[in-house]
């Protein structure tokens, strides 16, 4: 069916290729990974996504997402 809506999307999270259900938001991704409510910060295609926008930011095909935490360092 040519008009079929794609069921999945492919994106990169921290450099790793992931297949996610179409329509997944950043909030969904963080929840699914067990990172919701943790101290993380998210960048999407080189731009910071403020925490307040996770729920309304849909991940698009080909997005490059970085999720970071604070770790020990000097």
């Amino acid at each position: 069916m040519p008009d079929e809506i794609p069921q999945t999307l492919t994106c990169r999270v921290n450099g790793e290729l992931l297949m996610l259900p179409a329509g997944t938001t950043l909030a969904d991704l963080l929840r699914e990974r067990g990172w919701a409510g943790k101290r993380v910060a998210v960048e999407r295609n080189g731009e910071i996504v403020p925490r307040s926008l996770y729920a309304q930011t849909a991940i698009a095909e080909g997005d490059a997402i970085e999720v970071v935490v604070a770790v020990g360092g000097g």
């Binding site: 921290n14 990974r33 943790k38 999720v67 970071v68 604070a70 770790v71 020990g72 000097g74």
Partner: peptide
């Protein structure tokens, strides 16, 4: 105190302690 910023490990156990 200084901290570094790194990618969260995709396979990380969500209950793993966090430096912060």
């Amino acid at each position: 105190v200084t901290v570094a910023i790194r990618r969260i490990n995709l396979g990380q156990n969500p209950d793993e302690p966090n430096l912060l």
